[in-house]
């Protein structure tokens, strides 16, 4: 019985790792598309030199706020997934992994919330 549970757990961990691996590649490809749009906005849509008025013209539209929140969330997912890979490279203890998982998730959530708030403010100031 114990061995069946262990095997199931091991399979679950392996599947989770596989999913994380796939999502890291998928997020990288999506980031390329998001980044291309970001370059287009900042180099071709926005007037140079960059001013608050210019940025306001973009962030007054909800669609651009949503776009940038998605971009930032995806970027943070990709970044922290990479950090997680580096941190757990040598298969550390469960306790260490749990602590880092919580830290990275909380940090990502805080950064997304702050960024979303900043983008909304940028369209209003």
């Amino acid at each position: 019985m114990h061995s069946v549970i262990s095997k199931t757990k091991l399979k679950m961990i392996k599947n989770r790792e596989k999913l994380r691996w796939v999502l890291q590649r998928l997020s990288a490809l999506l980031l390329l598309i998001f980044f291309a749009v970001h370059i287009w906005v900042f180099y071709f849509k926005l007037e140079r030199p960059i001013s608050l008025e210019g940025l306001q013209e973009i962030f007054v539209h909800g669609k651009w706020i949503i776009f940038y929140i998605c971009f930032i969330a995806l970027m943070l997912y990709h970044a922290f997934n990479g950090v997680w890979t580096v941190l757990t490279d040598k298969n550390p203890s469960k306790y260490y992994k749990k602590n880092w998982r919580i830290t990275l998730c909380v940090l990502a959530l805080i950064l997304i919330l702050i960024s979303a708030w900043n983008l909304i403010l940028l369209g209003k100031v």
């Binding site: 943070l76 702050i114 900043n118 100031v125």
Partner: peptide, 21 residues
């Protein structure tokens, strides 16, 4: 990757200046 993570966090937090007007 690590350089970009640090720079990205600094950039996102730097944008918070907008809260001061």
């Amino acid at each position: 990757g690590m350089i970009l993570v640090v720079a990205g966090i600094v950039m996102l937090l730097g944008l918070s200046v907008v809260m001061f007007g």
